[in-house]
């Protein structure tokens, strides 16, 4: 009998599902090697099908997306019970991801912003003796490992085909990596960057730029060109895809294993190149980063030390 696997999406954009489909013909190898027992985006299995399975009968569940509502929480817990291994797939499940930026507000604030003066959704609606319910929309988005035990992490927004392939290989192989491993290299991206050698020994800048303000040179380290490239703080594994596309790294592979708070390290990497001791000048230079949370915590706000904004 082939090992059983499940895929599920929580608060995510669907890109991680797309990434699995993106495996091209390799998806057939996967389909040959395993039995997919649950994959709402592609196959018609229902929640009760999973409920009917014995505990631990699924080899691995790949859960992408952050936990933002009670429905996602319920299914995450269900899959945890039925699976031997749970993999947080993609940076939203790993660290909270882009949906995690909602932690700059809360449920009330978000509804006010989104529905303005329109009809806001209600959790429970009764009509003629019938009732309709919606899952609870949490105030705070959290990463998967805050609600269930997670065995492995596959980073990326979304994970690249190579990373997914390597992760599957590792899980199907005989030597399982230690629990808690992020299935990607444990060095920063600069290591894999084709532009690494062009970075000066002492990089000091008097000006930072935003991507729409320059046509970046194709060969030179982007940070050296004044673009806030987070490569020094971001885990390698993407093979510097963005850099090859002449765009700075935004940090979607998260930190290395030795770093507790990604944004703080990324911030320190960028701050370290600012060549000034003058408060006014520093403020002027930093005007090129009008959204520091969105820049440094774009994918990791829920798992940062602070976790969310304090609401008054």
């Amino acid at each position: 009998m082939k090992p059983k696997v499940a895929f599920y999406w929580c608060a995510s954009c669907g890109g991680c599902e797309e990434a699995v489909v993106d495996l091209d013909e390799k998806i057939l190898d996967v389909a040959n090697a395993v039995d997919i027992v649950f994959w709402p985006v592609a196959l018609d299995f229902k929640e009760h099908d999973v409920e009917a399975m014995p505990d631990g009968s699924i080899l691995a569940s790949f859960i992408n997306g952050a936990i933002r509502n009670s429905d996602q929480l319920k299914i995450a817990k269900l899959l945890r019970a039925k699976s031997q291994v749970v993999v947080a797939f993609g940076v939203c499940a790993q660290l909270g991801g882009i949906p995690g930026l909602a932690n700059m507000s809360d449920a009330k604030g978000i509804f006010a912003e989104v529905y303005r003066d329109g009809v806001a959704p209600v959790r429970l609606h009764r009509e003629n003796g019938h009732s309709l319910s919606l899952p609870e929309f949490f105030d705070t988005v959290v990463a998967l490992d805050r609600v269930i035990d997670v065995d492995y992490y596959v980073p990326g927004c979304p994970p690249t085909p190579k990373i997914i392939g390597d992760a599957l290989g590792a899980l199907l192989g005989s030597n399982l990596p230690p629990k808690g491993t992020v299935l990607a290299p444990d060095q920063a991206l600069c290591e894999q960057c084709p532009r690494k050698d062009t970075r000066p020994e002492k990089l000091l800048l008097k000006e930072l730029k935003r991507v729409h303000q320059v046509v970046a040179d194709q060969q030179t380290c982007l940070l050296a060109q004044g673009l806030a490239c987070l490569g020094p703080a971001t885990r390698a594994g993407c093979e510097a895809m963005c850099i090859r596309g002449n765009m700075p790294c935004t940090g979607c592979f998260g930190p290395t294993s030795r770093v507790r708070d990604f944004g703080a390290k990324a911030l320190s990497a960028i701050a370290s190149v600012i060549d000034s001791n003058d408060e006014g000048e520093i403020t002027r230079i930093l005007e090129a980063l009008p959204d520091p949370v969105g820049t440094f915590y774009r994918y990791s706000l829920p798992s940062s030390l602070l976790g969310r904004r304090r609401m008054e």
């Binding site: 690494k196 970075r199 000066p200 002492k202 990089l203 490569g231 290395t256 990497a269 370290s272």
Partner: peptide, 13 residues
Amino acid sequence: EEYCSGCRVCSAL
């Protein structure tokens, strides 16, 4: 060294 990416943030500081 096995973890260093060679980003040189340290040397400037």
